[in-house]
Computed example of a mutant assay.
Amino acid sequence: MAIQLYGAGLCHGQVRALEAVNLRICQGERVAIIGPSGAGKSSLLHLMATALQPSSGRLELLGEQPWALSARARQRLRARVGLVHQAPPLPLRQRVVTAVLAGRLGQWGVLRGLLNLLYPSDVPGARQALAELGLADKLFVQCGQLSGGQLQRVGIARALYQQPQVLLTDEPVSAMDPVLADHSLALLNRHAQANGVTLVASLHAVELALAHFPRVIGIREGQVVFDCPAQAVTEQLLDALYANEQLVPTPPQGPTLTVQIPRC
């Protein structure tokens, strides 16, 4: 099992971002997470990546309990997990080749990592990762010269170069045009299928989630609303998931969302 959550909750100060989330994601599965803004999609991805510690419940990742490990052992576990950010945290003056090769910093020693900042150690490998995303010509360009969509593709190339066992992507194509978004998600899925990588993506575009991922999880207000094969996601489920509570009448008591949670 790649990822298991047992009653996982997460609080940001006084705000509860996730509540009693139970999930099982097998090695090699490809899963999309959808839901309205503020539903907890990014929080869930960062919790899976061990960037955030559960406030309650438990996470198991690749057969380990990350928060029961020593800091050093947890860092080794993180090297097996890739995380693609919506806005990749890349220094503006850093060259693209260095940004991509940094995907393996967790697997290299300190000396090699430092030398790589001055003398990129695997230019052909970085070029190949970028070429798959149409960015081979940007190899030695500074990140600050790229558009938002190009930076997202560099972030994806960095994760592919890392070769993780679990790849978590948080709105990875939100700044791309529709053609590039479709191409990039197709590439991620091909890579995951070919290498047995567990791929989890939070996506704003429902049509992309349904087109590219066999399993779709809908979350709202920090809770799982449905967990289904893509072909089982109906208009009724989506209407309930994205219902704008500010624009529809709500009963004086009781929950506003009454959808039962379908399971695979």
Rank of each mutant, 00 (worst) to 15 (best):
G13S: 12
G13Q: 14
G13W: 06
G13M: 06
Q14C: 02
Q14P: 10
Q14T: 14
Q14K: 11
V15P: 00
V15F: 07
V15H: 08
V15E: 04
V15T: 13
V15S: 02
R16K: 12
R16A: 05
R16E: 10
R16H: 05
R16N: 07
R16Y: 03
R16M: 11
A17V: 08
A17S: 09
A17E: 00
L18M: 10
L18I: 08
L18W: 01
L18K: 01
L18G: 01
L18S: 02
E19T: 09
E19W: 02
A20V: 13
A20R: 02
A20F: 03
A20E: 01
A20Q: 02
A20H: 02
V21N: 01
V21W: 03
V21H: 00
V21P: 09
N22G: 10
N22E: 00
N22I: 05
N22F: 06
L23D: 07
L23Q: 05
L23E: 05
L23I: 07
L23G: 03
R24T: 01
R24C: 06
I25D: 01
I25G: 06
I25H: 08
I25E: 04
I25M: 09
C26Q: 13
C26T: 07
C26D: 07
C26Y: 08
Q27R: 10
Q27C: 09
Q27L: 07
G28W: 02
G28T: 07
G28I: 06
G28F: 05
E29P: 08
E29F: 10
E29N: 12
E29A: 14
R30M: 11
R30Q: 15
V31G: 04
V31R: 03
V31A: 02
A32Q: 08
A32F: 11
A32W: 10
I33D: 02
I33V: 13
I34D: 01
I34M: 09
I34T: 01
I34V: 14
I34E: 06
I34P: 05
G35E: 01
G35T: 00
G35Q: 00
P36W: 12
P36T: 04
P36R: 05
P36A: 15
S37E: 11
S37K: 06
G38W: 15
G38N: 15
G38T: 11
G38E: 15
G38I: 14
G38D: 14
A39N: 02
A39K: 04
A39W: 07
G40K: 10
G40V: 13
G40P: 09
G40T: 10
G40L: 13
G40H: 06
G40D: 13
K41V: 05
K41N: 10
K41F: 15
K41A: 12
K41P: 04
S42G: 13
S42P: 15
S42W: 11
S42K: 12
S43W: 02
